[in-house]
Nucleic acid binder design. Structure first.
Lengths: 116, 116
DNA sequence: TCAATATATGAATAAGTATTCATATGATAA
DNA sequence: TTATCATATGAATACTTATTCATATATTGA
């Protein structure tokens, strides 16, 4: 399990990899972001919110599942800074926090050759 | 838990959301991609491979952890189409399958305001 | 104030996933 | 062919995470 050694180019890449490896905290933040958008139930919420702001009831209609499950998922998305909420009378309306995440989604779809 | 009803704009967005919701299979594929790159241990492997091709031993050096754990993670990344492998004598060298995933990583970092 | 509606939340369970350990495979060199 | 090195893999365990169920909070209208 030691390094291969025969290949000089790999040595350089390995050295650079160690030097440029982001710290635990940074890797953790990036991972948390992807984890938040990796669950199909949450992805559907994001696809729904691409159309604009929606209250929880409408989100439930759009994505299916129970109110409780959707609410738990919304909390996770909000904690991750991906969506934002505003109270609106009896309802709470959610929207995408910024355009970056949709851009990430679209880039991922490009990679997968799927049109969305 | 029914839709809010008072807000006409939400009705339109909800309707569009239902119409444009990608199917289960497509959502699943996108989710699987993000899940693959959400685990810190696998993210580190991707950050390492940005420097170029590396054999398993060098990857273990760069990211830490045991040979077995790294190998399991590499299998997941390969199955997800994110990295590719080629045998090279006794070693097996891994590299990024294409540039899209690094672009996704960099976009995510933009969203998180972290320089990587 | 009371009832009704929308949403959130805590606790328990269920489902999914990573890691470890032991071992297998495949390549090379002696 | 045998020993050794690099890597992969199956099974078990430990961890993490989603979902469900019951209930709480907050807002509105009567």
């Amino acid at each position: 399990m030691s390094a291969c050694g025969h290949e000089a180019e790999h040595e350089l890449a390995a050295k650079l990899a160690r030097e440029n490896m982001p710290g635990e905290e940074e890797v953790g933040r990036v991972g948390a972001l992807f984890k938040a958008i990796s669950e199909p139930a949450r992805l559907k919420i994001l696809f729904a919110l691409r159309q604009g702001e929606l209250c929880v009831g409408h989100i439930v209609e759009a994505v299916g599942g129970t109110q409780s499950a959707v609410s738990h998922q919304l909390r996770i998305l909000k904690a991750a800074g991906i969506v934002k909420a505003r109270r609106d009378g009896q309802n709470i309306s959610y929207s995408l926090a910024d355009g970056h995440v949709v851009a990430v989604l679209e880039l991922a779809c490009t990679h997968l050759h799927c049109k969305i």
